[in-house]
Design a protein around this nucleic acid. Structure first.
Ligand SMILES: [Zn+2]
Ligand SMILES: [Zn+2]
Ligand SMILES: [Zn+2]
Ligand SMILES: [Zn+2]
Lengths: 144, 144
DNA sequence: TTCTCAAATGTTACGGTATAACAAAGTGAT
DNA sequence: ATCACTTTGTTATACCGTAACATTTGAGAA
């Protein structure tokens, strides 16, 4: 199974970083993984409630925050959602393409373009921090 | 006055586009202009209430949506806020730098870098739409 | 083992963000 | 004046996210 494999990698990744992928965090990660694209916190919360009967917002937000900090998820501000990072470990800044029609997500490497952006911003006295680039558009399928 | 000049240009810009900068929309634009950087909808709402006694969220959200659609404001998703576009008319895609410390904003031209991004995304079958690039970081002053 | 402390999770309550739905008022054309 | 259309007002509610404090858990020290 694809998911189990990812979880295993995530587990190793957390151990390397000296943080713990607890049962709850793993469960939330699995729930996010079960979606093909962007997922919202309250959707994860609903799923979690189906599985363990009761859960409150802080439970899922804390897990999501942890997973983002660990580099396993990315937050998609424009959609108030989260996506799985499929480039764990490859110390990267992501170029995240979100299809506005179907919600599917593709993640490319933004390192080269961010070098250019850092230079351009630096010329204006601005130091841009480590971050991902989010762009919206339409995926191959949705372009018909 | 700087603001009056901007409003005048905004008015012309709207006329050219065949949309109307009504009194309410102008008032909201002035309120956003009165801040140096990112402003939040509910802050504008509070200001509006001071000026006209009563106002509800839809009033300000509708005005803000209009101003964004007209190209007079940009929405900063990462901060749930809005900024004034100081490149009205120059048909542009902005590279918007937001200082995470002080909220100040600088807007550069993102056209060249978006050309590169379009090419990279196109290689993955993705057609990215017209949009601005938002990056967070620290401005000259806040870097101490 | 048992204690202790820090991290993680549970729980309650609340505040911030945004929109749906419908009513009323303005605008301009016939 | 009447009509169709756009804008604004109003109420209510849904969605997003966190503060604050209680409780549990688990790893290391005594
Ligand atoms: Zn990634
Ligand atoms: Zn799609
Ligand atoms: Zn702009
Ligand atoms: Zn600053």
């Amino acid at each position: 199974m694809e998911i189990a494999c990812f979880i295993e990698a995530a587990d190793r990744h957390c151990q390397q970083q000296g943080v713990k992928l607890t049962a709850l965090r793993r469960q939330v990660l699995e729930l996010v993984l079960s979606y093909p694209g962007v997922v919202k916190a309250y959707q994860v919360l609903a799923d979690l409630q189906k599985q363990r009967g009761i859960a409150a917002p802080p439970t899922v937000y804390r897990a999501l925050d942890f997973l983002v900090a660990a580099g396993l998820l990315h937050k998609v501000d424009a959609l108030n959602g989260y996506i799985v990072c499929h480039h764990v470990g490859c110390s990267h800044e992501g170029l995240i393409l979100v299809c506005g029609d179907c919600g599917q997500v593709e993640e490319l490497d933004a390192t080269p373009v961010l070098d250019v952006l850092r230079q351009q911003a630096g010329g204006a006295g601005f130091a841009i921090s480590q971050q991902n680039l989010m762009l919206t558009g339409r995926c191959k399928e949705c372009r018909t």
